[in-house]
């Protein structure tokens, strides 16, 4: 049953890759990659249980953190076209670009 769950999640990941390839806008692709990361965390945990090695959960925790940070970093990069810009609050100036 757990193996079936793992296969279902892997199938969902394959379908998400389809959306990441055909996504009309950039944000569709980022959404697909973010959701892919969440599914990867779940698949890593399930893989640990299938192979009877729950140590895989450590990798899953790390992946959950990296996934969030990478999503924010990609969004920041495509908004400012640079990583050197400090994040400013909207309304206090500094939103010259769109």
């Amino acid at each position: 049953m757990i193996a079936a769950a793992l296969i279902a999640i892997l199938f969902g990941m394959a379908l998400l890759l389809l959306r990441a390839f055909i996504g009309p806008t950039l944000y569709d692709r980022i959404l697909a990659v973010n959701s892919f990361g969440t599914k990867t965390v779940l698949a890593l945990g399930l893989l640990g249980f299938v192979m009877d090695r729950p140590e895989f959960l450590d990798i899953a925790i790390t992946y959950a953190l990296i996934n969030f940070v990478s999503t924010i970093a990609i969004l920041k990069f495509f908004r400012y076209r640079s990583f050197q810009v400090p994040l400013v609050r909207r309304g206090q100036g500094g939103n010259a670009d769109g």
């Binding site: 049953m1 279902a8 999640i9 199938f11 969902g12 779940l42």
Partner: peptide
């Protein structure tokens, strides 16, 4: 637990179908 895992995986699949 196995049943809940499977149900959650099916929900993930449904969410993916919605994304598509």
């Amino acid at each position: 637990g196995a049943l809940m895992c499977f149900g959650g995986a099916i929900l993930c699949l449904i969410g993916t179908v919605g994304v598509l």
